[in-house]
Design a protein around this nucleic acid. Sequence first.
DNA 1: AACGCTTACGCAATCGTTCCCGATAACGAT
DNA 2: ATCGTTATCGGGAACGATTGCGTAAGCGTT
Lengths: 354, 354
Amino acid sequence: MVASLSTILELGKHRNTTTLEAITIKDIAKALNLSTSTVSRALRDSYEINAETKRLVLEYATKMDYRPNPIAQGLKENRSRAIAVIVPEIANNFFSEAITGIEDVANAMGYDVVIFQSHESYEKEVSNVRNVVARRVDGLLISISNQTKDVSHLSDLHERGFPLVFFDRVSDEIDTYKVVADNFSGAFKATDHLLSTGKKRIAHITSSAGLYITKERLSGYKAALEKHEIPFDASLVHYCVNFGYIEMEGIIESILSVDPMPDAIFTASDRLALACFEVLSKRGIRCPEDLALIGFTNLKVAHLLSPALTTVTQPAFEIGQTAVELLIDLIEKKKRMSSTFMIKLPTELVVRAS
Amino acid sequence: MVASLSTILELGKHRNTTTLEAITIKDIAKALNLSTSTVSRALRDSYEINAETKRLVLEYATKMDYRPNPIAQGLKENRSRAIAVIVPEIANNFFSEAITGIEDVANAMGYDVVIFQSHESYEKEVSNVRNVVARRVDGLLISISNQTKDVSHLSDLHERGFPLVFFDRVSDEIDTYKVVADNFSGAFKATDHLLSTGKKRIAHITSSAGLYITKERLSGYKAALEKHEIPFDASLVHYCVNFGYIEMEGIIESILSVDPMPDAIFTASDRLALACFEVLSKRGIRCPEDLALIGFTNLKVAHLLSPALTTVTQPAFEIGQTAVELLIDLIEKKKRMSSTFMIKLPTELVVRAS
DNA sequence: AACGCTTACGCAATCGTTCCCGATAACGAT
DNA sequence: ATCGTTATCGGGAACGATTGCGTAAGCGTT
């Protein structure tokens, strides 16, 4: 026999509501004269609990605004219901949109998202990864830094069976899911567009040579050149390391001094496109008359620049969503790793003035 | 008597390194023939543990790459060493920069940052807050949504002693730390600049009327008008709700149709400035000839727009840093709440073409 | 009446860590 | 010889939730 709910609530009212202490399963058990196991089972709607008891527990829990302590659950179930995301930087439209996609899906599935930034530093990335494993998150989504050559900090994780999914800046040394934009096709479309509009010599400013996406984009660039029967000139390809303004100035300088001078530039990434645009406009170079420009970027303001920047945009939000869905699949072992690790989402060429 | 380290490592080598299972304090205890309490104390460098024992434990722990399980520690210490941040949206330069500041300090202090977005929705914000308390994070940093009128979901938290710090979009109903830019001064500088360059009628497009920062900016706007002895005209102030393009079109429409027509616009926030800029350029309005424009924004590309946008920029990174420092003070009760809750950081007027 | 079965619940262990109590030596002081 | 100290360590109970196992009560069956 258990006391009536009204009686119980009358007693419960004396709980000190001014403290931070949350109500636990024990408090409920004590209040209802039940054991913690019964309360636990009642809350999880176990078949072996009497309907009336369930009702009482549920009602009391609701009134007292009971929430299971996820830390205790995590300890018991050896999981944290949190996933980590490591990106080069958050203040970048592509990544912030991707993170929004990640957060969208993750929260809906009951996961929290813990964010780390590598700031394009290998050391910071390694320390972030260390942090991530120490934190016992359930999985990791990562877009590796531009400086990262050695991915052993990640392959270690992967070999130990830790759920790991790459997006955008993926590693080709580790066999797990990778979600990227169709970089080949995007680069092809961009280059092809420039060539189709009469440009002949196209410089390519891109991220570090080791990155998979860099290679893919270079292939697309080359394929378009081939289509238009223009020989590939390696001296027109510039690899960036730190994405800064100074570095970009040097690159533009060297591009302008080649003979014959290029008549178009195809840049990769938000930051490179922006830096390039900035240097060009500072130098008073007319665009697209002197030099056409096309960016592989997700800048929100591309159409507001002057001239409006022609871009290849990536489905950042969807990339984030897809990546986190795969990660949660891995975590919850819903499906076994398929053989198709690489998932490519279509890019879009948005032709504007530049 | 304990075994030598080499012997122990020889034995430890047989641990299955291909599993995800991390080494625990128990494993160390078993391997070294000690109790868990001794190991625990040795690791925390307790005075009551023999130096030699400490050395052994530490050495073994290092070799085996032992990391204390933060979930277990959290359960024991009733804390998670994580803080939550709720912002309207991450894909916004001001907020992403602020978050970078937050992450910077928080990680250095050993806290993780869990991010939630309200997407300017009151309901989403409330559900985010619910999530946050359920997650047992140690504290909350929040910039409230534009739609939020009722802050009872936050005052509840605050009354229960939950560490809470506002930044940017603060509430004036709750007495806790608030970190903001000096909105009054920023708005004053912006308006004063416009008036000093000969403008007479200045429209003000701003966020929702209930927000504290909206009021502060309006005050700064009014003060500048007063300085130049121009009467305040309430019909020139437009409050935005959802920050969308459609809404902005209507506002610009009504601004253009007033008689006499305003000759300048002062907008608040990244999104508003951008939307306003976009509508104006779509309509082919010359700027600053027909209509001058100044934005209260942290857009990175302000100088690349055409015309380059004159802005009042906020110290977003520092706002984030300051806010999280105060929050951690609250969490660790280092200092008692002082009487000065409101902390204002200086803004900067960057004069450009518009 | 003795048995088995179902229903409905409690006990206690568990997750990894911390920490309050002891416990046990060794050693000097009385 | 007895006691108090000091130095080192272990036992075991927490923290909150989950879960395998045990079991009492109730009921029907033979």
